[in-house]
Simulated assay, not measured.
Amino acid sequence: MSDTQPRPIPNARVSARAIYQTIRRDGEEEMARPMGSLWWSGVAAGIAISTSVIAEGLLHTSLPDSPWREPLAAFGYCVGFVLVVLGRMQLFTENTITAVLPLMARTNRESLICIARLWSVVFIANMFGTLVAATFTDVVGFATPTQLAAFQEVSRPLLDKDWLETLLHGIPAGFFVAAMVWMLPNARGSEIGVIVIATYVIAIGGFAHVVVGSMEAFLLMLAGEVAIIDALWGCLVPALIGNVLGGTVLFSLLAYGQVRLEID
């Protein structure tokens, strides 16, 4: 290397502008993928994210009844996100930032159609994936009666919130997932730590994540504890709106605002 050429700085942090360009490029690639690829990646993400409920339930039933049982069991909530994010599967709440940043840079009819296509396919695929996982867990008999009872137990707090409360609790969940996506380019070998920190806060805060919440809702629905209309309208719709508000309207706008004068 010539002495006149700049040398790379070891462990230098990635700039906000470079992070924006990285996420924007990922979003453009995702919107250009065939619909079939998006669908199956979304289904895989729905099934994988369901392990958050499974792992949390297994920890809950394995730990003694004590004040620290709940915060320790909450670490299980992070498992599904690690699988999905590191597996590069299509998760709807990740797309509230990855697909939106390209839209902010180039707002036109074509971009709006692309993001609508991406969001609708991925969201429906995620819901189908969690429904498959819930059916396999309950109806097919994947879990023992004790384990199934634990999965239902960790899912019941979903029913404690009213419609507006679920929406409001969905906002920080969307924000933290979008923040996780924004931080990953700077993680450099600490990706699991970044994912765990962001999603553990969602778990211990009792915030509403629409895809994980759909696994919880479907488990309770199959157990006869909630009607399908109440599960969809009362639990998933407000969580969906809150996640979009937190990930797109709040975090993505702030992320774009800090770099918009530095990008082409």
Results as ranks from 00 to 15, higher is better:
D3C: 10
T4E: 13
P10H: 08
P10T: 05
A12C: 10
V14L: 10
S15Q: 03
I19H: 11
R24A: 14
R24Y: 05
G27Y: 06
E28D: 15
E29T: 08
P34V: 01
M35C: 13
S37P: 00
W40E: 12
A44Q: 10
A48L: 11
I49K: 04
V53M: 04
L58I: 05
L58C: 02
T61W: 01
S62M: 10
P64Q: 00
P64G: 01
D65P: 09
R69C: 06
Y77T: 03
V84D: 02
L86N: 07
M89Q: 15
Q90P: 04
V100E: 11
L101H: 05
P102C: 06
L103N: 07
L103H: 01
T107Y: 14
N108M: 07
R109P: 00
I113L: 15
I115W: 14
W119S: 09
A125W: 09
M127A: 11
T130F: 02
T130L: 10
V132N: 03
V132R: 08
A133V: 06
T146I: 15
Q147H: 09
E153G: 14
S155H: 03
R156S: 07
D160P: 04
W163G: 08
W163N: 14
E165C: 06
L168K: 07
H169N: 13
A173R: 13
A173Y: 02
M180G: 02
R188P: 04
E191Q: 12
G193C: 05
V194E: 03
T199G: 03
I204P: 09
G206M: 09
G206C: 08
V210G: 03
V211Q: 00
V211S: 00
V212A: 05
A217D: 01
F218Q: 12
L220E: 13
A223G: 05
E225D: 14
L245Q: 10
T248H: 07
L250Y: 02
L250D: 00
S252R: 09
L253I: 14
L254W: 10
V259P: 04
